[in-house]
Design a protein around this nucleic acid. Structure first.
Lengths: 331, 331
DNA sequence: ACGGCCACTGTATGCGTATGCACGACCAGG
DNA sequence: CCTGGTCGTGCATACGCATACAGTGGCCGT
């Protein structure tokens, strides 16, 4: 391995001067910088991140805390976030939040991560508290747990859901069912509230038997839709917690021979690429997940550089995209 | 941060003794180990991975080199691999192979990764050579570049493709088209060869105009199928490089109003979860991607521990899964 | 001409852990 | 009683980089 010492020897300076020169310290003369840079490129020197991390007390690695790596949704979070972090000179390491929060917090410290993005926070998680107590910078992504304030990047479902429901109700649906997300997630809770509030404006209430709750995964949508649609008097429309859930529901409908949107309308939330497939054509609520992921990366890096900056709460707007899974109920 | 020195003070021993005791060095007496362990848990001490990495010259972080993080396929690689690595006490960091190979190799050294998994090698990539020259342990996953020998985990398409083609040909297809993968990937090349060889046994040759080549992504399948199916005399079956490509093809068919399998049969390779959706029901060639991903993780860790171990080449068998996208051509 | 300041560079040290080596204690054998 | 060995522990140091601090030399002002 080529070290700064090797570069120093070649450039005829001391090791600290190499360190300073390459980091563009103004206290080093231009001439020296030039020589050092030449020596560095001649040797193919690259600073050792481990050494630097040990020295400065923190690394350039940020963790992304996620529970369900197989979930399609996160692929579209990881990719842009990773790209943005790379652009900023940081690395992405994946962390799955296995049951206990303590391991995650310890993990962060022990491995010298400079900060973490929490993408699957539950409102009752102790992880944010732990991180705050240990002084680990973090940002909420998508979901939050506002008891512990921090930078956050979230979505405002209002506009999109309002327009979605305008379409659904406008088409004539009155018996509306829903497969909501977990109550202990801010996104699940918030979307449910908005749906109920807007429907209330139309004088529509969700029947208890038409409502399901479950995780944000395919299975929840699949099982939920089976339960909702298999009876003798199913709702004419099913609102889903997100697109992945909606995909589960669409497939359940297909299995049951229930036509979409002929027999039942289905709507999602997220507008994943899959949702625009010709085989799917899911009517859903869209927002800029890509931009959000990048912003989360930037916010975290900013936070790491300046731990006392005022927390920013970025909120992304939503819009309804009418495709082919919402239509008028059968007469 | 709590260091081994703090533990040493509390336990009344020296710092090196703490280091040895916690790593279960036989040269430390049981009594001392006991005291050290107690002190460590009392303080909530966790060894600092950075310090250790600097000291031993390598870390416990392994890189996964991938080009297309959005690709569904890799979600099903990353999840199990990550889990297995975690089990083995390692971390996963994502690396995207941006154009040049040099950056990746340097990156690995600079960030002290203990090894990498190459999941998107091309046969003409210089990365394997670079890694070998720099002594960085690595394993090939899925694809290989055999010019540079190393551990590898791959798939043997033979059995699955043979059975698939038996079905396709048995159903009566003679005009068969294909959207193959890139020629500079071992998987693309190998699958194409097997397909051609087996078809040859049936006395069938692929017409030049019925063959497309492209990356292993949705778009390639989508555009390829548009090209193949939009003419006045399309093939009656389209073999796809993998499931993601097949999904692109299925959607293109849907857009064109071409019925599957009524007007055209479509087959894939991989058997991703999506392929078994009721909306998709893709006939495809399956293998145990989950087990492969885990094995790659284990092999890499083994290689890191013993750089001179004999390279192992794990090859996974395939089997054909007939679902609903392959049927007899229209009379 | 000399004090003082600025610009630059080198020296020394620290970050947390691992490890070669030396040392002391203790025991057995001669 | 001394020698030689073993066992357990501490000491010193290394890993690669960053940084506080201590110089060194030159230049300017008086």
């Amino acid at each position: 391995m080529i070290t700064s010492r090797d570069v120093a020897r070649l450039a005829g300076v001391s090791q600290p001067t190499v360190s300073r020169a390459l980091r563009d310290d103004p206290k080093v003369s231009e001439a020296t910088k030039q020589r050092v840079r030449e020596a560095a490129t001649a040797l193919g020197y690259a600073p050792n991140a481990i050494g630097r991390a040990l020295s400065v007390g923190r690394s350039t690695r940020v963790g992304l805390v996620v529970t369900d790596l197989e979930n399609q949704f996160y692929a579209h979070v990881i990719a842009p976030m990773h790209q943005e972090l790379e652009r900023l000179g940081h690395e992405l390491v994946l962390i799955t939040e296995s049951s206990e929060a303590a391991p995650v917090a310890e993990h962060v410290l022990a491995h010298g991560l400079c900060g973490v993005v929490l993408a699957t926070t539950t409102v009752d998680s102790v992880l944010p508290t732990r991180l705050r107590d240990r002084g680990v910078p973090f940002v909420y992504f998508n979901r939050t747990a506002l008891a512990v304030p921090a930078d956050s990047v979230t979505v405002d479902p209002e506009r999109g859901v309002r327009d979605l429901l305008a379409d659904v109700v406008g088409q004539g649906h009155r018996r509306i069912g829903a497969i909501f997300g977990p109550r202990n997630t801010s996104t699940g809770e918030q979307r449910e509230q908005v749906v109920r509030a807007v429907l209330d404006e139309y004088g529509i209430a969700l029947a208890h038997r038409d409502v399901r709750h479950g995780p944000f995964d395919f299975r929840a949508g699949h099982e939920g839709a089976h339960a909702l649609l298999d009876g003798d008097d199913p709702p004419t429309a099913v609102l889903c917690a997100n697109d992945v859930v909606a995909l589960g529901a669409l497939n359940a409908a297909a299995e049951l021979g229930v036509a979409v949107p002929g027999d039942v309308s289905v709507a999602g939330f997220d507008d994943l690429p899959t949702s625009s497939w010709a085989l799917v054509r899911l009517s859903t609520v869209a927002y800029d997940l890509d931009a959000m992921s990048r912003e989360a990366a930037r916010l975290l890096v900013r936070r790491v550089d300046d731990p006392h900056a005022e927390p920013v709460r970025a909120v992304y707007p939503t819009r309804y995209i009418a495709r082919a899974t919402v239509a008028a109920p059968r007469a």
